[in-house]
Design a protein around this nucleic acid. Structure first.
Lengths: 349, 349
DNA sequence: GTTTGGCCCTAAACCGGTTCAGGCATCCGC
DNA sequence: GCGGATGCCTGAACCGGTTTAGGGCCAAAC
């Protein structure tokens, strides 16, 4: 091992006591100065700060955690079948957004991926008994979501991604997807489609049921009845099955609104397989605007979500909640329809 | 606020001192008993453990961190443009695999997503000065990767995902992708293809350059020359561009081996757009076997990677390294070709 | 019978911060 | 001139574990 390298390894960690000794003051005063709390003379504070930086002092996160009972980390628990998760690009972008606000604050993100809802609760419990995080993001909201009361009982500061359907003590950071679905339906209706179907997500998931409601609402508003709806679990396989069912029946729809891009992509695949042309024979729209959407053929008409922005807003809100004890709900700009090639005028029958 | 709820919030944390008092022994002995270290009479140990569990004692991660100078967490830093990252399902599956070994051990995963390589190094430094993690996974290995020596200097236990092209002090957990690429080429050659092109990943990335070498190697072995190669940065956009270039030129290839599924999917889109039929006019293979692959039309012939297994193996190895101070390299089973519909016999010219 | 050594255990220091009670000046108002 | 408020600072306790020096006690060795 060479000798030049280890500026880090060899430098015995300089502590607050070293700074105090050097400055000729007590440990306590150094702590006060470093956290700029009142009760320290300005020039003393300046001197302490100067010495601290000269000595290369760095706070010990561990010591600070122990005495202040904070962990300087936020948590995200994702409960999904890994197989399904893999194809959903939401979280990586979301996390990148979260990171943009955490990193400058010196906070870390603790991520858990668990297989099912039960271990998810267990994970939250471990997170708080271990004091691993100061707060969490709650995603994939479900109807009548048990996690909300559970987290409330645990006393864990939480921000929900989306507005729950039940009374919640937590701030919600939401994006309105209703609007995007309605826009999709209007777009298709405007192109002349009458038989429009919806491949919905899971009705147990809040965004699944909301989008489905938005669909039927928009259909009625357009005077097109309720529209045919097939419920799924948001998986690609289920999306493909739903598309197959819809397109194989007599009098198939001329347009299908999918509740997610992955399902829509599977839908396009099924259409091709069945010899149904997109968009000539069936128009297709998606939801999310994942990167693939633009590169398919035909390019997917879809609703643009903004997970990065969402992550940033959620992190900001959660931080505010933790620091001040309360935070306002945040409503992000509604997701908008992005028109590409997968939806067009229906073929004359 | 109701009164029944807060079993957690109200229970004043029981500490090791409480257990000691109850058992009529010293704090130190309790600590010894709980970590089963020698020097405690068997019946005393049993009594202490019994009392600890009766009192509902739970170790304080924070206190333990401070005194033992460990953090009971592992780190993963991902440096990518979030846009590119979003479409790559590798990490979510990988993380799920990691989690299967961390969770039972009571360890957490700290995840950072950073925009570029420079902040990545910075992040590693922060991770160690903060004592945030006990070790890290190093992914997306690059040619002559500066991070390896940097991490070595930081003294941070590391496992590399793949075998570096330079001397490395760290154990490597690798999967041979060479084999899958070679299999793809042989498969295509066996179908009768002569003009086979490769849309490579970034030559600066280890897996990019390895796959490219594997391609040319296999081409030569099949007596088909070097084959045309277009280098990209692994992004979907670059994959689409490459495909466009290849298919628009005079005497286009009859088969294209893509270095990743996302690029292959974009390639299929481009082919459709250009009126080139897949697989009749051009055969296409990918790499990764992302979930989409199976649901496209035609379904993608691709090489199956196993990020979940990889994550599990990497976590096990990193844990071993941290605990014992050394660990062996691990070679995962080679990725195999999965034959689906996107490659077939070339059209007679 | 003393020494040696092992076993079981205690007391106290330690990790590196935060926090709180209180001491000492200095300044104010009356 | 004096009581009280204010500003700056110290010392020590505290967070909840780990670790080490050493003290009895008992059995085996000499």
């Amino acid at each position: 091992m060479q000798s030049t390298q280890d500026s880090v390894k060899n430098s015995a960690k300089v502590t607050i006591a070293d700074v105090a000794r050097e400055a000729g003051v007590s440990k306590g005063l150094v702590s006060f100065a470093l956290n700029d709390r009142p009760g320290v003379a300005v020039e003393t504070r300046a001197r302490i700060l100067k010495i601290a930086s000269a000595l290369g002092w760095t706070p010990s996160l561990r010591a600070r955690s122990l005495s202040s009972k904070r962990s300087f980390a936020l948590g995200l628990v994702i409960a999904r079948d890994p197989e399904v998760l893999g194809s959903d690009p939401f979280f990586t972008s979301f996390i990148a957004g979260v990171e943009t606000v955490l990193a400058p604050e010196g906070l870390a993100l603790v991520l858990s991926v668990v297989p099912d809802a039960e271990t998810e609760l267990q994970t939250y419990r471990t997170l708080v008994t271990d004091g691993r995080v100061d707060g969490v993001f709650l995603s994939d909201l479900r109807i009548d979501d048990a996690r909300i009361t559970y987290l409330a009982e645990l006393g864990l500061p939480t921000v929900t991604l989306g507005r729950p359907d039940q009374p919640s003590p937590f701030p919600a950071v939401s994006i309105d997807d209703t609007h995007g679905i309605a826009e999709s339906v209007r777009h298709l209706a405007g192109l002349g489609h009458r038989r429009i179907a919806h491949v919905a997500g899971s009705p147990a998931m809040l965004h699944g049921s909301r989008r489905q409601e938005a669909f039927t609402g928009a259909m009625r508003a357009a005077g097109l009845g309720d529209g045919q709806v097939v419920e799924t679990d948001f998986s690609i396989a289920a999306g493909a099955d739903a598309a197959r069912r819809l397109l194989s029946q007599p009098g198939p729809p001329t347009a299908i609104v999918f509740a997610s891009d992955p399902m829509a992509i599977a839908g396009i695949g099924v259409a091709h397989e069945l010899g149904v042309r997109v968009p000539e024979d069936v128009s297709i729209t998606g939801f999310d605007d994942i990167e693939f959407a633009r590169y398919l053929y035909p390019a997917l008409t879809t609703v643009g979500a903004t997970p990065l922005v969402w992550g940033r807003a959620a992190a900001t809100t959660l931080l505010g909640l933790i620091r001040t004890g309360s935070a306002e709900d945040v409503d992000l700009p509604a997701a908008r329809l992005i028109v590409r090639g997968s939806a067009s005028i229906p073929a004359p029958h």
